[in-house]
Write a protein that binds this DNA or RNA. Structure first.
Lengths: 256, 256
DNA sequence: TGTGTCGGATTGTCGGACGATAATTCCGAA
DNA sequence: TTCGGAATTATCGTCCGACAATCCGACACA
């Protein structure tokens, strides 16, 4: 084949179902349809776009999957604001497939959690503090069950995230938090003193937030994470090993 | 309505197309099919799952949209490792719909960029440094065009992200970076001294990375971000206002 | 007020079909 | 025998029509 000068750009026709999805998405993002408002039935979309119902369905499935539209009780489609977990699980999957190492997760978590605790110490509401107190109390009660403690740990950090009042930070954290959870679970199951140290750290974090003491918050967040790292090593793992094998058991059950 | 004791869990039947998607996803995540390997044609999946082709298609669309499977040149489906941008754009959309404020974005970016620059200063390879040098040189050449500078700024930060060698951090940053870009573009267009200050900050950041000077890196990252915030205010904006209106123009064109 | 019943609307799923396009095979010419 | 182009095949994107299940609303009934 002769090397011919590139006079034309490669033709790339976008499939119809994608065009449908993009059209609807644009309308939503530009505020044409506001959250909660209906988007029309499949039949209506068929008429508007002039494509077959199967095509429409493939298109709206994408948006539905993204959580930017949702079926309400009518089964009719309505615009909705995607909630955090839905997005996070995908990024977490990507991390698993990329076979990220514990060290990467640790570094990122350190940065994100320090920022979160700072925000929480400055802005936590009384209600959020109460919820965290309740969480700590429950943790104290189930200290003998590593799995339960791990779950409460995850919840505690989610609460701090909410208390920080920073949604960008929350969205940034969620994916790695999803990886932290199974890792913590594994650690707590193997390191006897783990649960007690975790509980103490939570207590001190909560206390720092209550006292609006940013520095103490940072200090204990750091300690908490360092415990986590040491626990990971003490459980016989290498910091530079991928963490996928740990995640899998959880990922498959919690999906969707 | 009387408050009745919840004896039963809400019934939730999962549609077939979702089951198809989940089944394939599980197989991929547990390593049953590795990246690059084919997943079977639609016809084969129809036979295996015992459902109609339309149903299979709705299912694989979801995974395809997530980027965990892809069509290769054969058009056949193969497992793939989702790339960052694909995931980021969705989280960014969520931020827009949540109407996050500039302050939230600023705080999160601060935490993420400081961690990134730390990693880059410690681990940047010669090739990454060369790429960053090239980026800075190009920036110097187009200093008169705010839009071009904004784009190169975005690229520069992506390069630092790659240089940090931390994929978790990269994945965490990408969504907010996508919001930072249009904001920067707006600022540079309105603040005359913006491009020059930006270029200087990049030069200093690059220099810090080259010298493996973590502290200098942190210092200049902080300055760079503070410039950004001040620019935002000087352009006549309120830190606590949602940033959606800025993002929209870009979001619609860059999607997919 | 609470409970059957009915009709209409909407979705989930199905089977079948066609054209377009890339991959593969095949065949005739050099 | 080898090579290039033509014919065949495989696969996907899209379309059509159809059916059952389910939900909503209305209405009658106790």
């Amino acid at each position: 084949m002769t090397e011919l000068a590139e006079k034309f750009r490669r033709i790339h026709s976008t499939p119809a179902y994608q065009l449908v999805a993009e059209a609807i998405e644009r309308r939503i993002l530009t505020g044409g349809i506001r959250p909660g408002e209906p988007i029309g039935t499949e039949a209506e979309l068929v008429k508007q776009f002039g494509v077959n119902r199967s095509t429409v369905r493939e298109g709206i499935r994408l948006l539905e999957h993204d959580g930017i539209i949702q079926r309400q009780s009518n089964r009719r489609l309505a615009v909705s604001v995607p909630h955090y977990e839905r997005l996070a699980s995908r990024t977490t999957r990507a991390m698993v497939l990329h076979e990220v190492t514990f060290r990467e997760l640790y570094e990122a978590s350190m940065a994100l959690q320090l920022a979160t605790i700072e925000g929480a110490a400055q802005r936590a509401t009384a209600a959020m503090i109460a919820a965290m107190e309740e969480n700590v109390a429950r943790t104290a009660r189930v200290l003998g069950e590593p799995a339960a403690v791990a779950e409460l740990d995850s919840e505690f950090h989610t609460l701090i995230g909410r208390a920080s009042g920073n949604r960008v930070l929350q969205l940034a954290r969620e994916p790695s938090d999803l990886l932290v959870y199974p890792t913590t679970k594994m650690i707590l199951a193997k390191v006897p003193e783990g649960p007690a140290r975790l509980l103490e750290a939570h207590r001190m974090l909560l206390d720092a937030i209550r006292r609006r003491d940013v520095e103490a918050g940072r200090l204990w967040a750091r300690r908490h994470l360092n415990d986590w790292r040491k626990g990971f090593e003490r459980a016989g793992n290498d910091l530079d090993q991928p963490i996928d094998s740990l995640y899998l058991r959880e990922a498959t059950t919690s999906s969707s």
